[in-house]
């Protein structure tokens, strides 16, 4: 449904991808771990490899959890599907788009 307005009401999104150049925003959703109170938001180049994303952005963030184990087995999800990203794949290659949410769950 459209807004009711006096005159044209049409404004660009203030979060649109072009405002981030070659980068995009990527969300990480920590599942089954209440230590992380909310999902995280990162700015990352589309061409960043998964390895760099993991080591450079995600690990330093997740290490705040004293029980964090970088080597634990994890299930990743994107767009409702399980994904198995390789370290050398770029975010773009994995299919991560601007403001996507990547789910992360540690297997028991």
């Amino acid at each position: 449904m459209a807004v009711n307005s006096i005159g044209t009401y049409d404004f660009p999104s203030r979060s649109r991808q072009e405002l981030y150049g070659d980068d995009q925003l990527v969300h990480v959703w920590f599942q089954e771990n209440m230590w992380f109170c909310a999902s995280a938001c990162f700015r990352a180049p589309k061409a960043m490899t998964w390895g760099d994303f993991w080591n450079g952005l995600l690990v330093p963030y997740a290490e705040e959890d004293p029980d964090f184990d970088p080597g634990a087995r994890r299930v990743w999800t994107l767009h409702g599907e399980v994904i198995e990203p390789r370290d050398d794949q770029t975010l773009e290659e994995i299919g991560v788009e601007h403001k996507d949410v990547i789910g992360m769950r540690v297997l028991a």
């Binding site: 807004v3 009711n4 307005s5 006096i6 005159g7 044209t8 009401y9 404004f11």
Partner: peptide, 8 residues
Amino acid sequence: YRPLWDPE
């Protein structure tokens, strides 16, 4: 946000 009653 911009006002619906005066988007200008």
